[in-house]
């Protein structure tokens, strides 16, 4: 198992954790049984903000690890 495959495994598991984390973050905003517009707007804003931030952090972690693995590999063309 090489570093490239391990890195791709990391992207899968961290992507999964990201989805669960985003759902945990929006959980307090959704109260069962209510469907009010204000609540829905709050849900969208908080959900979008948390998901965007988490996505950016996640992508950056993959990019940094990817560049490091690529640089340590066996040369270019």
């Amino acid at each position: 198992m090489d570093k490239g495959f391990l890195l791709s495994l990391y992207t899968i598991f961290s992507g999964w954790a990201l989805i669960l984390l985003a759902l945990l973050l929006v959980k307090p905003v959704i109260s069962p049984g209510s469907g009010e517009l204000v609540e829905a707007v709050m849900y969208v804003l908080l959900g979008a903000l948390s998901i965007t931030l988490a996505l950016l952090l996640w992508y950056e972690s993959i990019r940094v690890a990817f560049l490091r693995v690529k640089a340590s590999g066996p040369g270019g063309t």
Partner: peptide
């Protein structure tokens, strides 16, 4: 960055 590039980031495949 693509998935193929990530898989092949360490060596020629």
């Amino acid at each position: 960055i693509s998935l193929i590039a990530v898989i092949a980031s360490d060596k020629w495949k």
